[in-house]
Amino acid sequence: MKEFKDKVALITGAAHGFGHSLAIEAAQRGMKLALADIDQDALEKTLSDVKKIGAQAISIPTDVTEESEIANMVDETMSKYNEINLLINSAGVAIPGPIWELPTRDWEWILHADLMSQVWALKRVIPIMEKQKGHGDILNVASMAGLITSPLMPAYYATKFAVVGMTEAVEYDLQAVKANVGLHVFCPAFVQTDLYHTENHRPAKYTDKSDPYYSSKTFKEGQKQAKIDITTGMPIDNVPKIIFKALEDDKFYILTHPGMNPAIVARAKNIPSGEGPDLKALAPFLEQTHEVKEDK
């Protein structure tokens, strides 16, 4: 996408983090916005922020773990603007905890929020973009956790690897039918987002306060570490310019932390040789995840 002015952007997770910062950037570029999030109060704040910039915008309260609400989100956007030129699937949660302790409901929550929400949105938006004049773009927010792994967050890595693989596969399908739709997958390492407040946005259907896991040492330490990782990450102000430049340049993979590139390459090289994960070999790369550098 080379031109953004007067184009329509639909953004999930728009109340916080990447979604909020990308909404601001899109507004500054003259885009019309449809903003979706489960946190209605914060969503209205984002709506106010972009309107102060001068953007035409609507807010659509949305629980992305429900397919029917994703369908409604797309329908409301089309009812207002009659087109969608840029879809940004930014909504998501992060859940730490080893597989032998993490409750099944937490797996269901993260799979629905981080993966299925994107599947449901692509299923509806790609046909819309195909019928429109001009080019459409879709950005799926994944993570460096979709390219390499580390300890303590198997549910998060499972969903992010799934997002990367799904996005790659859909890109092949779009090329095969010569669709005028471009896919992009965003894979940042730690950035100063709202992700460590995931528990504030847990829907009731995934909640069981009687489960001892949520008062366990594992759960409490996981929440504490998540806050440290996120609050010491790259400033989020660096991110929107990186992403929109990548959209302009039609980059498929969008990264933020060049220091992690050797770890990505090392993992790929280990696969044909049969080498498995090595925590000691990974340690030096983990120190790079908080570096404050822009991808060149």
Rank of each mutant, 00 (worst) to 15 (best):
L22H: 06
L22T: 06
I24R: 11
E25K: 14
A26F: 06
A27E: 04
M31G: 10
A36T: 05
D37E: 08
I38P: 03
D39M: 07
A42Y: 12
E44N: 15
K45L: 07
S48Y: 09
D49C: 04
I53F: 11
G54V: 03
Q56L: 13
Q56M: 12
I58V: 07
S59H: 10
S59L: 04
S59G: 13
I60D: 00
P61F: 02
P61H: 01
D63M: 02
V64S: 00
E67M: 09
S68W: 03
S68L: 02
E69Q: 10
E69V: 01
I70C: 04
I70D: 01
N72M: 05
V74P: 01
V74G: 06
D75I: 03
E76L: 13
T77C: 13
M78T: 09
S79A: 14
K80E: 10
N82E: 09
E83Y: 13
E83S: 15
E83I: 15
E83N: 13
I84E: 01
I84G: 08
N85V: 11
L86I: 12
I88Y: 03
S90P: 08
V93R: 11
A94V: 14
I95H: 12
P96Y: 08
P96T: 09
G97D: 15
P98F: 14
I99P: 08
I99K: 07
R105H: 10
R105W: 03
W107F: 15
E108C: 11
W109H: 10
W109A: 13
I110N: 09
H112L: 08
A113Y: 06
L115C: 10
M116D: 05
S117A: 14
S117D: 07
Q118E: 06
V119F: 14
V119W: 09
W120Y: 09
L122A: 10
I126C: 05
Q132W: 06
Q132M: 15
H135Q: 15
G136M: 11
G136V: 07
L139M: 09
N140R: 01
V141S: 05
A142Y: 04
A142E: 02
M144V: 03
A145P: 02
G146Y: 00
I148Q: 00
T149A: 01
S150M: 02
P151G: 03
L152K: 13
M153H: 04
M153I: 10
P154N: 02
Y156W: 00
Y157Q: 05
A158W: 02
T159F: 00
K160E: 00
